[in-house]
């Protein structure tokens, strides 16, 4: 998949205008840019580098610091299981394994068709309603085997997340 720089300007320009080309808003710009493809495309970094007058290495340095920013494709659906001890006590590990099995992939890797990735993340602040997960930033709580199956099914059918 090659995406021309031109194509990036389409979604990056409005972000840059709203952020007034402010280099001190770099993290916010990257986060908003990522919402377009689910990751930050290499050409997008070039474009931002040029428009914000920041070295490419500086932008990559910032992006690589934050675990929610991706420089590589991470799947259309990014599933993150909250991995606090309270989630573990409620069986999140078995649920994660089950979902990986259902969707044919390994934890931390993207499925071959680029559809989905499944990984763990630090406590998501839902310990009163665990086990919990984030799917593309949306919190889903009180997971059970049945709910995980259903979510896996919706992902496989590419159902939009609003359900």
């Amino acid at each position: 998949m090659t995406i021309s720089t031109n194509k990036h300007s389409e979604y990056l320009d409005p972000i840059l205008v709203r952020r007034q080309y402010n280099a001190s808003d770099l993290l916010q710009i990257l986060r908003e840019a990522q919402e377009h493809y689910g990751y930050i495309h290499s050409d997008a970094i070039d474009y931002l580098s040029q428009k914000l007058q920041l070295p490419r290495a500086k932008i990559e340095g910032v992006a690589s610091f934050y675990s929610f920013l991706y420089l590589q494709p991470h799947g259309e659906y990014r599933v993150l299981f909250s991995d606090n001890i309270t989630d573990r006590m409620l069986g999140n590990q078995a649920l994660l394994e089950e979902m990986c099995h259902q969707l044919w992939l390994q934890p931390g890797k993207v499925s071959e068709d680029g559809l989905v990735s499944i990984a763990t993340t630090s406590c998501t602040g839902m310990c009163d309603q665990g086990p919990a997960m984030l799917v593309n930033g949306r919190a889903i709580t009180r997971l059970t085997h049945q709910r995980v199956q259903e979510i896996g099914h919706l992902i496989r059918n590419r159902t939009p997340l609003d359900e």
Binding site: N84, I85, T86, S122, C123, G125, M126, C127, D128
Partner: peptide, 11 residues
């Protein structure tokens, strides 16, 4: 930022 595991009052 409420990152301390087990904390969710700010949420």
């Amino acid at each position: 930022d409420e990152g301390e595991p087990g904390t969710f009052k700010d949420r």
